[in-house]
């Protein structure tokens, strides 16, 4: 098995075995979208208009929810030290690691996003566009959470700090992913543009964030 495949597979396996896999983020996401209408009120037009935004925001929070574990465990049990002493580039290792965990834990978010969209009264097409936007947003969200998680690795009760570091970085993804859903609902032609911009942000993050994460890991171990 290739080195990166091995890391990807191990992270996915560990997320399933030790952390309940996708259950945590999925349950959190579901709880958040259940509570929002109770706070806003049952008015159908209001819910449909606010739906894409609430769903994208709740998805963002679900990603943050598991961010502390992403690098915290590997930091305290010495695994990161060992990653530093392999010939493979640390940035590539970190990318494989974050993606492995994301693929095991975050896959239900787009599905629940579509479901939630329908519950909030979005037309099916808009709900699907929102689901696609969430899918496109996941790499960026996971990597940003990973970057913040690496910077705050090993800090006691670092969850809050990670959220504070990561939220400003998640602003663009949130805008474009929610914007795709909102534009689709409004019948705006910018839905596709928003979707593409979400994808572009994700690709840009895939290209840049691993180097940031690797630098953060090095800085925290030194």
């Amino acid at each position: 098995m290739g080195v990166l495949t091995a890391i990807f597979a191990r992270e996915a396996r560990l997320a399933w075995a030790g952390g309940g896999g996708a259950a945590g983020p999925a349950a959190f996401f579901l709880a958040a979208i259940t509570l929002a209408p109770l706070a806003i009120g049952p008015a159908a037009d209001l819910l449909a208009a606010a739906g894409p935004g609430i769903l994208a925001f709740a998805a963002l929070l679900s990603v943050l929810q598991s961010a502390e574990r992403l690098f915290g465990d590997d930091f305290s049990d010495g695994t990161l030290d060992l990653y530093l002493l392999t010939p493979t580039s640390l940035a590539a290792l970190c990318l494989a690691k974050v993606m492995g965990q994301a693929s095991a834990t975050l896959w239900p978010l787009p599905l629940i996003g579509v479901l939630g969209g329908l519950m909030y009264g979005l037309p099916p097409i808009s709900a699907l566009v929102l689901g696609a936007a969430l899918l496109a947003a996941i790499p960026a969200l996971a990597l940003i959470a990973g970057f913040a998680g690496a910077l705050a690795a090993g800090i006691k009760r670092g969850g809050l700090l990670i959220a504070l570091i990561a939220t400003p970085m998640m602003v663009p993804v949130l805008i474009f992913a929610a914007g795709a859903g909102r534009s689709a609902f409004a019948g705006d032609e910018r839905a596709v543009a928003n979707l593409l911009l979400t994808l572009a942000i994700s690709l840009g993050t895939v290209a840049l964030a691993p180097f940031g994460i690797a630098a953060a890991v090095r800085g925290r171990l030194g």
Binding site: G2, R13, D81
Partner: peptide, 28 residues
Amino acid sequence: IAWLGHADGLKPGETPRSALRFWADLYG
């Protein structure tokens, strides 16, 4: 360098077999 830190890098749910398979892959 082969490094043995103060912790052994083992995950609670992992068996020696799966952990060492992973490290064998990583070390080539």
